[in-house]
Amino acid sequence: MIDENDSLWVQRTIAGDPQAFGELVQRYERDAFNLAYRMLNDRGEAEDAAQEAFLRAYANLDRYDMTRPFKTWLLSITSNHCIDRLRRRRLVWLSLEEPLPPHPALTSDIPGPEEATLMNERNVLVQELLEELSPDYRLAVILRYWYDLSYAEIAEMLNTTESAIKSRLFRARQTLAERLESRPIPSLDPAMEGRS
């Protein structure tokens, strides 16, 4: 569904008012950041990726199709950028010329025992589970669960078929269920939402 306010802000930005784009940033910062964080599992990198997605959206605003929701377009840019970053991470890992990266335990966003008490344990568990999936499967799960997009919308965003998305989600759910097994699910602490 197209939001008229979004269209208005896009038109005002194109008309030469960059502050109008600020309205779009404020409205969708959470969506872009959450997607980047769920994909990359690193707060700092997620902020950089979300910022880069907004910059790309701004620079390519003339290519935005106003008949489609701005949010979907922005999520599409963010997901493409995150996939690129994950590929680059893998290339660095595989490159013989580069020094080996430190052990994941030293770089992971998963907190140590002290920090864990301050963070939402549920988010940590979710991130651990998502890390088990390949980027394509992870993206399908994130778009389905956090953005409530239909199979058709996800397929259109990722340039693939609806049946491919169904298959990815089916397998992803199987994998996640196996990994979760009988681990307890931490209760949600509403006070920590948005701060972990």
């Binding site: 910062e29 959470r30 969506d31 950041f33 959450n34 964080y37 769920r38 549920r122 988010n123 568990l125 979710v126 589970l129 799960v141 669960y145 956090w146 996640l176 979760l180 699910i185 949600l188 939402e193 948005g194 701060r195 972990s196």
Partner: peptide, 9 residues
């Protein structure tokens, strides 16, 4: 678990 885990800001 996935349905009830909120977005991160």
């Amino acid at each position: 678990l996935l349905r009830t885990t909120p977005m991160i800001a």
